[in-house]
Write a protein that binds this DNA or RNA. Structure first.
Lengths: 151, 151
DNA sequence: GTCGTTCTTTTGAATTATTCACGATAACTG
DNA sequence: CAGTTATCGTGAATAATTCAAAAGAACGAC
């Protein structure tokens, strides 16, 4: 995996540094981590670095097209490695968990929308908001518990 | 218009205050304003208030379902009055302008996506990123100018 | 109309995520 | 191996937003 990452960086004209490799490895395991989580994961693995440096690396990799950055509402920016396919995200409104949603439509989802006159669409960001399985179950349980208490 | 706004507030159980009415009027004219712009517009109209209070009002109105809040990437949160229909947004990556995009699909756009197991979708946020007509024209002009210079 | 309760606003500070600046360090080139 | 330059680390700075407590305004009751 690391060898591939090295090539990936070289391809984009970026220097291969320990920090960048480490960030890429972390994002392999934490697919939707924000800067703080990446930083924490790096510390855990013995990489002594700062949050600012993590932002720096994430910014560089995003700029180079290696990472994709997206910002769920009311939460910090998150980063992920899947950039080639255009998949979407489902954000749990209760616990904040982010899951991937593969686009049902071919490769350019919803790009045939009725854009304003002259507007050139380059990309579409689709985010679904809802309840993940666990939170939905918890909510249902809470509802029945309340109903039972008031009955 | 103001009478309607008054009723709107009452319906949602919110007290009718000058500030809230004023914010609603501003958003009638500036459909995708952020807190700072709303504040500036209020000052211009002689309403003496603070940015924090504007945030407060916007938060209350959003919580009451009168306003819709959305956050284009890398920009402050914006607010709009259109909440009943589920339209989308086109954000110009060059100038940051936001325009409305009416959904081509019926009422629930892309809601039939392949959600993760157990995930209950409540809403879909679709944002198109691209170049607005003006910025596209400017970019094209710059390109030809450069080509001419180097030729 | 007046009174009192409760919701809103105000003011100021605090928080969070991110960016900037610059000296120190490490990676690539020849 | 030495030189050049991208990158990292440290610290401060910025921007948007939230929080907390006291002052003020809106609504309902009388």
């Amino acid at each position: 995996m690391t060898e591939t990452d090295v090539e990936l960086l070289r391809e984009r004209g970026l220097r291969v540094t320990q920090g960048r490799i480490a960030v890429l490895e972390v994002l392999e395991q934490l697919p939707h981590a924000d800067a703080e989580h990446v930083h924490a994961a790096l510390i855990e693995r013995g990489h002594d670095t700062s949050v600012q440096s993590v932002h720096n690396v994430l910014g560089d990799l995003t700029g180079a097209g290696i990472l994709r950055r997206f910002e769920p509402e009311r939460s910090a920016a998150r980063y992920e490695r899947r950039i080639d396919d255009n998949h979407h995200h489902a954000v749990c409104s209760s616990c904040g968990r982010v899951e991937d949603v593969d686009c049902v439509v071919g490769e350019a989802p919803c790009l045939h929308a009725q854009a304003p006159a002259g507007f050139t669409i380059q990309a579409a960001n689709v985010t679904f908001v809802g309840l993940c399985a666990e939170c939905a179950a918890a909510a249902a349980e809470a509802a029945t518990a309340t109903a039972g208490a008031t009955a």
